[in-house]
């Protein structure tokens, strides 16, 4: 399984990421997920979320999750981008792409990746009030 992990303060450029997609002709499914910053946290309005990571451990934990995906589904590739630093409302903080032969495994693997990330990858967010 091919994997590509980007953890960066750069804005996520969906178009550029899509242009770099390379798929084998046996692959029939691409699932992409974007996590976007909402304008509120609880009852409070916010302008942005400020993301921080224990980056070395985050990379390691993402690697373990990718390994688990590979063991469970016939996925061709996973690309994941997590933005750090200040991410304004309406902008994506997370981009995930899974390519696989069929949609079922692509959807399942993508959901699994995000669920595991939210349990294990040391990234935190601080709301910046409006």
């Amino acid at each position: 399984m091919k994997t590509e992990l980007t953890i960066s303060t750069d804005a996520i450029d969906e178009t550029a990421l899509a242009k770099r997609r390379v798929m084998d002709d046996g692959m029939g499914a691409v699932v992409c997920f974007l996590g976007v910053v909402r304008g509120s946290e609880g009852d409070a309005s916010i302008t942005a979320l400020d993301y921080e990571a224990h980056e070395e451990m985050a990379r390691h934990q993402f690697g373990l999750i990718f390994d688990a995906v590979e063991k469970r589904w016939p996925v061709e590739s996973v690309r994941l981008v997590h933005r750090l630093g200040v991410v304004p409302v309406n902008e994506p903080s997370l981009w995930v792409e899974v390519t696989a032969p069929h949609r079922a495994e692509a959807f399942d693997a993508c959901q699994f990746l995000i669920d595991e990330m939210k349990q294990k990858v040391p990234i935190w967010k601080k709301p910046l009030p409006a």
Binding site: M57, Q61, I114, M117, K118, V121, I123, W124, K125
Partner: peptide
């Protein structure tokens, strides 16, 4: 180091331990 460990993990001299709240990526 880079691995989660449980309370009964026996530490060694020089270990690098991280303490943090529940993670919130995404």
């Amino acid at each position: 180091g880079l691995e989660y460990e449980s309370d009964d993990f026996v530490l060694s001299d020089g270990d690098e331990v991280s303490f943090f709240p529940p993670v919130q990526g995404g």
